[in-house]
Design a binder for these strands. Structure first.
Lengths: 142, 142
DNA sequence: CCATATTCTACAGTGACTGTAGATTTGGAG
DNA sequence: CTCCAAATCTACAGTCACTGTAGAATATGG
């Protein structure tokens, strides 16, 4: 029987995060000791590891909820899981493309800055005038 | 004199976002009509455009606050602005490296999925067992 | 003058946690 | 068995950068 702290250490999760997952229904309500502390088994450890790994791959908790549901029903078609992963892949590719545009622009800003005073700072100048940008970077939160 | 909606349209910002920027002190309190509606001038338009552009480049509002402060004092050294931009560049590069690792892993997952049922779905299998990953992807929120 | 569009304030909600306060429980040493 | 420090408990507020909502007031064109 594993205490919540052990589970946390083994999966690289904060204790509060585990309780949060329980609260939103991603993790099941575990058994309790007489004193009211949570005790977990191996199944819960595996489930939490699954969740954390999916988070590391950038899946949202909603997507993870679906993946866990699929994983709980081995007779269901794999197609859905494949679609979720495919969607995630396309999102990652999109974010990379956007970041690439940002990188180019930032590099240019930094390299062109000659180090005088802010009156003719290249960094600030580019920020002031969008038309100086070579690449398009229209979305926020890329 | 520009109404808040005009400012919003011209800069691609939501009206509430402009009020939010005012609330946190990023935008100044503008003049008001007799009826209490906000009216802006060109200076505010420029300032908002600066903010939005910096947001598109991924700067946090805190970094933008510093950049605006530097921009307001043309006699200060450019060095600080350069450092902020450099920091942002390194962050973007880090995020790109992480996303690259994710992309590799997701691609592998999706391509190896043969389309049976979830019992032997490659996507779910990889999520279940971290050791199957070829690349390291340790940080969440990359 | 009136209808419609815009703006106002104030507050709650988002996602995915993280942090805090104050009380209780647990596990091991003596 | 007693004591103590570490871990855990609940409940709630805070983070970031917005976004959405309700209900009232204001502005504008016909």
């Amino acid at each position: 029987m594993l205490a919540i702290g052990t589970l946390a250490r083994r999966t690289g999760t904060k204790v509060q995060t585990i309780r949060y997952y329980e609260q939103i229904g991603l993790m099941p309500e575990p058994g309790r000791t007489a004193g009211g502390q949570r005790r977990y088994g191996e199944a819960e450890l595996d489930r939490l590891a699954f969740i954390r790994h999916a988070r590391q791959l950038g899946f949202t908790l909603e997507a993870i909820r679906e993946l866990l549901d699929l994983s709980d029903h081995p007779e269901k078609s794999c197609q859905e899981a494949d679609q979720i992963a495919g969607r995630q892949l396309r999102q990652v590719e999109l974010r990379m493309a956007r970041l690439e545009a940002l990188r180019t622009e930032l590099e240019r800003m930094v390299h062109e800055c000659s180090g005088g005073n802010t009156a003719d700072c290249r960094v600030l100048e580019v920020l002031r005038d969008h038309s100086e940008c070579l690449t398009a970077h229209d979305e926020i939160g890329a």
